[in-house]
Computed example of a mutant assay.
Amino acid sequence: MSTLAHTMMTTARSADSGLAGPGELDRYPYAEAPMADRVAAPAWEGADSDLGRVGRRAGGSRGRGLHGQLVQQLGQMIVSGDLGADRPLVPEEIGQRFEVSRTVVRESLRVLEAKGLVSARPNVGTRVRPVSDWNLLDPDIIEWRAFGPQRDDQRRELNELRWTIEPLAARLAAGHGREDVQQRLVDLVEILSHALAQGDALTFSRADAEFHGLLIQVAGNRMLDHLSGIVTAALQVSGGPATGCERPTEASVAQHARIVDGLGSGDGAVAEGAMRQLLTVHPEVERVVPAPREH
């Protein structure tokens, strides 16, 4: 068994990184530490020491098997700066270091190329691309940046992006009432309240992520709907306590409930105002956006 395969098996977690579907969250048996127990893969050894350093914190691969693990490790190394811009990536060397086939290396590099992290050109080979070429809205890159040296910038940028997207989504969602969605949002507020009372930060974060993702999906704007994955990624890797509201409090639960009330009554202004209040928790965000208006 290869080193990479061994790492993949030993770092598997009892609960995956996805969210429970509608109606399942309140009975989902969450693991105690979905982020904290992640283990980095073995470092590459040899003359190319910078090619041997993996990212500071390994995350669960969205792919399967060796291919997904290799994408994860190379992606983290690029985003962390361990593999700098214009660094050549030699497939034969990668295959030898990670003990994987040329097919696995080739497919992994294609995935990274689609994310804007590398480029492959005839007579030049595969090289790492500068950060200006990366797809910074890709959920994998969001996660890798969140656990690397760009963590603070990532958090600030995600919070600013959410502040731009979600108040509008809340306003629009108030005009697209669906009874099943409305009931699920009500249920999620109850789950948030119960999780807060129990001190269950993980359940709180999962419910929070589903709440915000669902809200964007029902806003009735297909372009906003495509951004729901970005918001979900932001909630999952926001840093510190893994919650979109940063700190589970009675006030944050109350704002969630106020959003639901606005949606139920079709009052977009109330829903939007409550969302702005909920999201304005970071000083760096407050510097670039106006204070929320009371309605």
Rank of each mutant, 00 (worst) to 15 (best):
D152G: 08
R121F: 08
S49F: 11
Q150G: 15
V104W: 10
G60F: 05
R162P: 00
R56T: 08
V104C: 07
A47M: 12
D86L: 09
G65Q: 09
A120P: 02
V90R: 09
I78D: 12
R127C: 12
S132N: 06
S101G: 12
R97A: 14
R110L: 09
T164I: 11
Q96F: 13
E143L: 15
A41R: 02
R155W: 01
R38A: 13
H176I: 06
S49P: 04
G84E: 13
D138R: 00
V71L: 01
Q73E: 15
V90N: 08
H176N: 13
A174H: 04
E143D: 11
E143Q: 15
E160P: 01
G63F: 01
A169G: 14
G75R: 02
G125S: 06
D50H: 11
G63Y: 00
P167I: 11
E166K: 04
M77W: 06
D48S: 11
D86R: 14
P149G: 15
R155P: 02
A169L: 05
S80G: 10
S132W: 07
V131H: 10
A85I: 04
A58C: 01
E93W: 07
G175D: 11
N159S: 13
G125H: 03
A41H: 03
V39G: 03
L66I: 05
S80R: 04
R87K: 08
Q76F: 03
R127K: 13
D140K: 03
D153T: 13
M77Y: 03
A173T: 03
T164D: 11
E99N: 06
E99C: 07
D180W: 05
T103C: 05
Q73N: 06
P122E: 14
V71I: 14
D86G: 05
R102N: 11
G148W: 09
L117Y: 02
R155T: 10
G81P: 07
Q72C: 05
A41N: 01
G65A: 03
Q69I: 07
D180K: 02
I94G: 09
A120S: 12
I141W: 03
T126D: 05
D152P: 02
R57Y: 07
F98T: 04
G68P: 00
R129W: 02
G177E: 05
V54Q: 08
P149Q: 14
P149R: 12
G116D: 03
R102A: 13
R155F: 04
R178F: 05
